[in-house]
Amino acid sequence: MEIDVTWFLLGLPLAFVLGWLASRLDMRQLRIDNRRSPKAYFKGLNHLLNEQQDEAIDAFIEAVQKDPDTSELHFALGNLFRRRGEYDRAVRVHEHLLARGDLSNAERERAQHALALDFLQAGLLDRAEDALGKLEGSKFETQARLARLAIYERTRDWPQAERIAQQLQTSGQGDFSTRAAHYLCEQAAGQSPEQQHKLLSKAIELAPQSGRARIALAELAEQAGDTHEALNLLLAVIESAPSATPLIADKVAMLAIQSQRAGNVQPVLQALYDSTHSLDVLQALAKLRASASGESALREQQLAHLKQEPSLVIAAQLLKTQSLDQDIQRALDKAAQPLLRYRCASCGFEASRHFWQCPGCQSWDSYSTRRVEEL
């Protein structure tokens, strides 16, 4: 059977034309898809600017479906889910990104950090800690360490918190010595006296300017019956951290009286009172003077204070010596009571006692050692 080559020659131009048409159709479809994808993306941005998160999510989902390889769209979608509180969907988006083999190292680290934030905001602290630990050595290392530090503080895992604080200090991310000293003081609580002494001594080495560890050591010495050593430690607090003096002034006066060193301690407290006019230091001075001169010394000290500083607290205490009606005295005491509280400088939370860490906002050293009336 002979094959007529004429048909082949006639078919070649036809095949070329059909191939050209097919390529044109493919290019046209590609341009249409490319136009639709940015359109959905910008539509989502527009919804975001108008704070229409539901519509923005729908638009980004549409864009991701049309271009599943675009990592930026996945990041935008995952962040939107997290902001809306849909943490399970945010986790799925970021885990899908991490599962991709074509992701660059920078994008992989970014996805790992986003996944850690999903777990953190969802309250899954153990999974967040594990995800943050995988960011060691990345550009997110410092942020991850700070987040882990917050987790350890929240779970009261003080040894781990101290370790992270030391890492941040070593890497030059700020001064974490005072916070690390607080962690050591927290660890000391409930330990044996020997272990407490070891941890508190280490805290003093880390942050000699912080008074908390010395105050705790003074309590240990007092419990052991060594009032002389306890007083020396508190006097060292006054020297190294004078702002903490109002917290220990009453104890200093009591120990000075017990160890018969009131004459040596009074000038120290007087110098501090002259510069600060602290109510607590005033009460301690009055106690020292009363032990030597009687109750009249207390009244004289209080009257002298009122001439320099108006104080409802002191006025209420002075009027107790007068023959006031009990209802009037009760009303004065009630009005003065809130003025004796301590206040957090970060969140304004007030409490009847001083905290080293605010129970409201968890800030360290945010409580002033001065009473509310003095602020």
Score class of each variant (00 low, 15 high):
residue 296 S to V: 09
residue 45 L to W: 15
residue 310 P to E: 08
residue 132 L to V: 02
residue 179 R to A: 06
residue 373 E to S: 06
residue 305 H to S: 13
residue 111 A to V: 07
residue 364 W to C: 00
residue 204 I to L: 02
residue 170 T to A: 10
residue 304 A to C: 13
residue 323 S to A: 11
residue 168 L to H: 09
residue 245 T to L: 05
residue 82 R to E: 01
residue 30 L to T: 08
residue 206 L to S: 03
residue 45 L to R: 07
residue 119 F to M: 03
residue 235 L to D: 01
residue 240 S to M: 02
residue 80 L to T: 06
residue 188 A to I: 00
residue 202 K to I: 04
residue 347 C to S: 11
residue 194 E to Y: 09
residue 232 N to S: 15
residue 271 A to V: 09
residue 256 A to Q: 07
residue 238 I to T: 11
residue 170 T to G: 08
residue 71 S to G: 10
residue 253 A to D: 08
residue 23 S to A: 15
residue 289 R to Q: 10
residue 103 L to F: 08
residue 44 G to L: 06
residue 306 L to I: 09
residue 268 V to N: 06
residue 112 Q to H: 12
residue 29 Q to Y: 14
residue 255 L to M: 08
residue 210 S to K: 13
residue 41 Y to K: 08
residue 35 R to A: 14
residue 264 N to K: 13
residue 308 Q to H: 14
residue 26 D to Q: 15
residue 249 A to Y: 10
residue 124 L to N: 12
residue 31 R to V: 12
residue 190 G to W: 03
residue 10 L to A: 10
residue 351 A to H: 15
residue 258 Q to Y: 10
residue 93 V to W: 04
residue 316 A to Q: 11
residue 357 Q to F: 07
residue 97 L to H: 12
residue 247 L to P: 03
residue 207 A to N: 02
residue 323 S to G: 12
residue 340 L to D: 03
residue 181 A to N: 06
residue 30 L to N: 03
residue 185 C to F: 03
residue 303 L to N: 10
residue 249 A to I: 14
residue 167 Q to P: 02
residue 297 A to R: 04
residue 299 R to V: 15
residue 316 A to H: 01
residue 180 A to C: 09
residue 317 Q to W: 12
residue 375 L to C: 01
residue 153 E to G: 02
residue 63 A to G: 05
residue 51 E to K: 08
residue 71 S to Y: 11
residue 172 G to K: 07
residue 80 L to Y: 13
residue 190 G to T: 13
residue 234 L to Q: 05
residue 27 M to K: 13
residue 19 G to L: 14
residue 149 L to H: 01
residue 338 P to Q: 05
residue 143 Q to D: 11
residue 248 I to D: 00
residue 224 A to N: 12
residue 132 L to S: 03
residue 165 A to N: 01
residue 224 A to W: 04
residue 219 E to V: 12
residue 346 S to Y: 11
residue 327 D to L: 11
residue 272 L to D: 13
residue 171 S to P: 03
residue 312 L to P: 05
residue 97 L to A: 14
residue 188 A to H: 01
residue 340 L to Y: 12
residue 201 S to P: 09
residue 353 R to P: 06
residue 48 L to H: 06
residue 133 G to W: 01
residue 138 S to P: 05
residue 31 R to S: 08
residue 36 R to S: 06
residue 56 A to R: 00
residue 365 D to K: 07
residue 329 Q to Y: 12
residue 338 P to T: 09
residue 369 T to V: 05
residue 360 G to W: 12
residue 253 A to E: 03
residue 58 D to I: 15
residue 168 L to V: 03
residue 334 K to R: 15
residue 326 Q to R: 13
residue 300 E to A: 08
residue 173 Q to W: 06
residue 195 Q to M: 04
residue 30 L to W: 12
residue 94 H to D: 06
residue 78 G to M: 02
residue 348 G to K: 15
residue 119 F to W: 08
residue 199 L to E: 00
residue 367 Y to T: 00
residue 207 A to M: 04
residue 167 Q to V: 06
residue 94 H to P: 05
residue 174 G to Q: 01
residue 320 K to M: 09
residue 324 L to K: 11
residue 360 G to C: 09
residue 175 D to V: 00
residue 265 V to I: 07
residue 86 E to C: 07
residue 291 S to P: 02
residue 160 Q to W: 04
residue 313 V to A: 09
residue 71 S to E: 11
residue 213 A to I: 04
residue 229 E to S: 14
residue 268 V to E: 03
residue 289 R to V: 02
residue 119 F to K: 01
residue 114 A to E: 02
residue 255 L to N: 04
residue 116 A to M: 03
residue 293 S to D: 10
residue 334 K to V: 14
residue 116 A to K: 01
